[in-house]
Amino acid sequence: MPKSVLIIDDEPLITAALMTRLEALGYHVYHAINGLAGVQAAELHRPDAIILDIRMPDIDGYEVCTRIKRTPELSNTPVIFLSANVQDSARQRAMAVGGSVFLSKPYEATDVIAAIEDLTEQPLTLKENAKHV
């Protein structure tokens, strides 16, 4: 069964680029165009991994991640932050709210794929998870 990934990003062309790349590799991709829709989509589809933007029109990525981590069925779903904000403070905050990896835009597709694969290989122990932080 193909792995599923949810992309939460308000920029349609970024979503399109990620979808094109991931679908070509055989992933099943869902997407949401804002934070609230993203939380709903996560609850509905229970993806294997989530790619999450930070700056979005309604609720920001930190809040989305906080809500996802608070939902028992989703609390173990790895969240990959993908943001144009490259400041250390953004990275730290993303990790503090439960993000597993922080990647900055423009990203290298290989980094995104490696992160998805590493995080969805098998149920991660806390220690293994910490390697990505």
Binding site: I14, A17, L18, T20, R21, A84, K105, Y107, A109
Partner: peptide, 14 residues
């Protein structure tokens, strides 16, 4: 700048 730049770079790569 980063968002359109990401789109350009990523689609060229695709």
């Amino acid at each position: 700048f980063r968002t359109p730049l990401t789109v350009i770079k990523e689609f060229a790569s695709i």
